[in-house]
Structures are given as structure tokens and as C-alpha cells.
Amino acid sequence: MLSPSKHGREARRAFEANWLARLGWLALAAYVFYAGSLLDLNWERLLLGLDNAGRLFGRMFPPDYSRWELLLKGMMESLEIAVLASFFGIAVSLPVGLLASRNMMPAWLTWPARMLIALCRSFHPVIVSILFVKAVGFGALAGILALVVASIGFIAKLFAEAIEEISLKQVEAVRSTGASMPNVLIFGVLPQVLARFIGFAAYQLDSNLRNSTMVGIVGAGGIGGTLFAAFQRFDYDFVLAILIAIIVTIMIGEILSARLRAVFQ
């Protein structure tokens, strides 16, 4: 028995059992079983899949680099898509982000800009790619346009948030000297947000690089098309070669963007 303390309350036991949390875990387990049965997930299929996976990996090794020219061409196109989409995406995001920042712009300008950003965010890049493939045909252009849209949705929002967090004292100081609007932006706003902008831009380049390896699946250019074709032809050793190339490229991209951020810290 626990003795009542001076204040008439029972001393709290260390590591008391939390029945509500346990009930929650139980509910989660029940959901997993319910949803699993709904999607027809069972051990039989899982074991069959493991069997298949063994065979798949057997056919993947060793990776086949004999068609390296095709691989290189696809990777180059993916890189080009990523670079151009990042460049134009950031170029469009700068004004859009500025228009969406509520401390610099009037409400009748921020609302449409915010709507545009939300619209760009709401669809997955692959779905946007499908629409652009219909509009401008197969090829890298559709991929670039789709990733520009994705970039605006992500980075313009971050730009706007960064601008909203700046100190207005410097802006007012510049403004009080009679500076024009562009000068206020260049000397009052930009120095406060440049480092963060570069960080976001580096992140977006990373993210676009990842996505540019995928838009090819719907015909929007890059290594994704080659990968999809290799899958459909069951060339699993070439698939592994492509996957390794993608992973290495993205790792290098991550290291580069970390360096880039360090330069502008």
C-alpha cells in the first residue's frame, strides 16, 4: 500500500502504466489487421514475394554497365532537367514569394500569390508532368515545366515565410532615406534573407534532382524513361546499374548542396 502524503494525495508511482496509451496501441494493431485484410495482405503473398525478391536480386547481380552510353545520356538529361527547373523555379519563386509576404505587400496582392503557391503545391510532380506531356509533348520540356511548378509550390512558400520574419527596422531605415522600392528590396530586405534563400535553393536543387529521375516514367524526359523501359523488358541487371547511378548522383548532390550552404553561412 502507498501511504498518503502530507497533502492527502497518493505518491505518484514511477513509470506508471498509461492505460489510455495502451488502448491506443491496441486500436492501432486492430487497424493494421483490418486494413491489411482489406488490401488482401497476407503471409502467403508475403512469403511468395520474398521468394520472388530472391530471384529478382539474383538476376540483378552483377549490375550491367554495358549500355553505359544510354545510362549516361539519361542521367545527363535528368541533371539538365534538375538544373533548369531549379533555375527557372527559383527565378519565378523570388517575385511570387515577395508578393506573398504579408509584411511587405498589401492583402490584395498576397492572397492571389498565396493561392498560386497552394495550387502548385497540391499536386504531385508526376501528375503535373502528365498534364504537361499532354500540353507540350513528350520530352525534357514537360519535365522541366512540371518541376518548375513543384519548385514554386515549395520554395516560394519558404521565401515568403523568410521575408515575413525579417526585422523591419532596417527596411524602414532604408526607406526613410527616400530609396525607391527596388533599392529597399536590395539593401533592406535581401541582405537579411540571402543566406536562407541560398539554403532553400540548394534544398530545392536536391529535391528536383530526385524528382527528375522519376518524371521520365510518364514520358517527361530523363533517366526515368530508361529505367521504366528496363523494368518492362525485365533487364534487371541494367535496372540495378541505373539505380546505383541514381543513388550515387544524389549522394554527390547532397554533399555539394551542403558545401554550397556552408559557403554562404
Binding site: L48, G49, N52, A53, F228
Partner: peptide, 12 residues
Amino acid sequence: LVFVAVFGPGPL
């Protein structure tokens, strides 16, 4: 794509 090759098409 990888898991469709492993488990066949479907939600799994």
C-alpha cells in the same frame, strides 16, 4: 516498380 516486380501488381 521494384515491389511490383516482387509482389506483383496491387496495393501490397
